[in-house]
């Protein structure tokens, strides 16, 4: 098995297909980060499968020199679940977007998360429908004016991290397309986590929704707005750490000047089994236009659906022995006609 010992590089995960996202799209940065990360963590291209739905982000598999499946709108988790159940030897990644994953595919997302199937979900959130050319999405802020909502959108946006935590996902993180180091960190965590990992990635659509995440991406703003979650550390942020997150008696969280926080500052612990604290943290930022937590919200161990399903099959074989077809067919009341 000498091939397994050769250290792979980003190039080994890069397909020969021309990348066709718009120039300046945040997807390029995510693609490069993922390709490098897989080489770094020692993943094998032949044991890696990227599965996507429909949308700009869902072209992702074509650019990876791994196995891939560009499925249909919203359904990537369904195909990935069937593959995960049948193939425990594979690393399966889902690439989806805010429309694909939260609108048309919202049902599958919720059920995949609660089942805790062994796969990694990357949700590229650009708060817009890009491929259909600029309609508002389930994450667009209330009142968004786009082609289909000239007088402003009327429906309340979904917070993907809150949704994932509500479904009791076992690994929930958020990062930013252009912050390579931070993104690599949460993706590495996702790769290493057994069960469903959910990573929301703020991704800039420079054509239809440019600057949606400026508060978190741009120099001069991001220093003030990124609340970087570090396990075991008090949650403070700002250039001088001058602001802090505290927990209120009712369980909600609030931002206060650090000097006022004192003992009340929240120390980040993503391993809490109870998702309530992580949920409160996710509610801290109603939209990514101000201070917003990024990093790993939750990372807990829970039985993995496909592992448990395979265990049942093994247990049945243990109990009844390997199935015998003749025995099965003759299993009811049989009679002989001579």
């Amino acid at each position: 098995m000498t091939t397994n010992e050769i250290k792979l590089t980003k190039k080994d995960f890069t397909s020969d297909r021309e990348v066709r996202w718009c120039p300046g799209c945040g997807d390029y940065a995510i693609l490069a980060t993922v390709q490098s990360l897989l080489a770094d963590v020692g993943a094998r291209p032949e044991k890696t499968v990227f599965i996507s739905g429909i949308g700009c982000s869902s072209r992702f598999p074509y650019y990876m020199d791994t196995y891939g499946f560009h499925t249909i709108h919203g359904r990537a988790p369904t195909v990935a679940t069937g593959l995960a159940i049948t193939r425990p030897d594979l690393d399966i990644w889902i690439v989806t977007g805010d429309g694909d994953g939260l609108s048309i595919g919202g049902n599958h997302l919720m059920h995949t998360l609660r089942r805790n199937v062994n796969l990694n979900i990357l949700l590229f959130n650009n708060e817009i429908y890009g491929l259909t050319k600029g309609q508002y999405s389930p994450t667009s802020p209330l009142g968004s004016v786009h082609k289909s909502t000239p007088m402003g959108s009327l429906d309340r946006p979904v917070n993907p991290v809150s949704l994932a935590l509500g479904a009791e996902a076992t690994y929930v993180a958020r990062s930013i397309d252009t912050d390579r180091q931070h993104l690599s960190g949460v993706l590495r965590g996702a790769y290493e986590h057994r069960g469903t990992s959910f990573v929301e990635i703020y991704q800039n659509c420079n054509i239809f929704n440019d600057g949606a995440f400026a508060a978190l991406r741009e120099k001069g703003q991001k220093e003030h707005n990124q609340i970087r979650l570090v396990p075991g550390e008090p949650i403070t942020f700002g250039p001088e750490g001058e602001r802090a997150v505290i927990a209120e008696p009712d369980g909600s969280m609030r931002i206060v000047p650090t000097e006022e926080a004192g003992e009340r500052v929240v120390v980040h612990d993503p391993t809490r089994v109870e998702p309530t604290t992580a949920f409160a943290l996710s509610r801290l930022a109603p939209s990514p236009t101000g201070p917003t937590p990024i990093g790993v919200f939750r990372e807990v161990d829970r039985p993995v659906y496909d592992d448990e399903l395979r265990k049942q099959v093994a247990a049945a074989r243990e109990r009844y022995g390997e199935g015998d077809l003749v025995e099965l067919l003759e299993g009811g009341n049989v009679w002989d006609v001579l």
Binding site: I51, F69, T71, R75, P77, T78, V79, A80, T81, G82, L83, A84, I85, T86, R87, L90, N107, H108, M110, H111
Partner: peptide
């Protein structure tokens, strides 16, 4: 599965597997 579509998708994934 959680619905008919998911059932069909899972079967596609299993065939690929």
């Amino acid at each position: 599965a959680e619905d008919e579509i998911a059932a069909m998708g899972s079967v596609i994934g299993a065939a690929f597997g």
